[in-house]
């Protein structure tokens, strides 16, 4: 198979993949974020502390997580038909992809949100903030770097799942590799497809890491404890620009307020 023959096939398959993964990621984030936060809030000692809701939600998430995607796709046929009017094609593949990714992402959100320092929640409570304020102003913004990393993981997982979408005729890169590479022994095309997939995944992973790290650095998670940071700052003092060191003047001591030494 020549390159000019491969090109249109690859182009179409790439678009199909991006279309399916894009929409299902969006739905997974919209559905998984509140679900993950709900899991944290309703947990024992959480802000909403509701064991019943927590246990039920947790079970549902676990069951959905443990189901192999290909089976989920078949199991959801009726639901898919109800939503999209068909069980074949790209739109039909988005439904099981999104539903499979929601609990996956929800668990990642749960882990990320749990990492947020409880002291921050307490600080906002002491200001008179309600639970919704805490979610909006503390839990989500403070866990944003981890949430972005979780989204990246979800996208990569969805690209993997989308290979199976070929079974419902949705196309995509995975389907291309199977149909041409495996069934027609066109190993050239298969390897090119694998390469394209590798590039796509690398780009997504890189972009996600870059965004997460950027946010991380800004909010300075680098310094674990103030004292340690202080020591490290002093070690690194010679490299600091004068502007930076000028920005941290020594603490002024109000001598009038101090007891006689």
């Amino acid at each position: 198979m020549t390159w000019s023959e491969m090109q249109p096939l690859l182009e179409q398959a790439s678009w199909d993949t991006l279309y399916m993964v894009g929409w299902s990621t969006l739905i997974a984030v919209v559905g998984g974020l509140p679900l993950g936060i709900l899991l944290v809030l309703t947990d024992r000692g959480g802000l909403l502390g509701n064991q019943a809701v927590n246990k039920v939600t947790g079970q549902v998430v676990n069951i959905a997580r443990s189901m192999p995607f290909i089976i989920l796709m078949v199991a959801l046929m009726d639901f898919t038909r109800w939503v999209t009017g068909t069980t074949i094609g790209r739109e039909a593949a988005i439904v099981p992809l999104a539903i499979g990714a929601i609990p996956f992402f929800a668990r990642l959100v749960e882990t990320a949100v749990r990492e947020v320092d409880g002291g921050l929640v307490e600080a906002v409570q002491s200001m008179g903030g309600n639970t919704w304020t805490i979610v909006r102003k503390v839990l989500v913004p403070e866990s944003l770097p981890s949430l972005i990393a979780g989204t990246t993981t979800t996208i990569v997982a969805l690209i993997g799942y989308s290979a199976m979408a070929g079974t419902v005729g949705a196309g995509g890169l995975g389907d291309l590799a199977v149909r041409y590479g495996y069934q027609r022994f066109e190993s050239d095309l298969m390897w090119v497809t694998v390469a394209v997939l590798a590039v796509v995944i690398s780009v997504i992973q890189f972009a996600g890491d870059f965004a997460a790290r950027g946010l991380h650095r800004r909010s300075g998670h680098a310094g674990p404890a103030p004292r340690l940071r202080f020591l490290r700052d002093r070690d690194a003092a010679p490299e600091r620009s004068p502007e930076q060191s000028a920005g941290q003047p020594p603490e002024p001591v109000k001598s009038s307020e101090l007891p006689a030494p």
Partner: peptide
Amino acid sequence: AGRELRAARSRIGMVFQHFNLLSS
């Protein structure tokens, strides 16, 4: 915390050992 308690809390300032500033 109900609305009245939250209103009362907002009239009480609190500072913490580990500062509890939002890093974002």
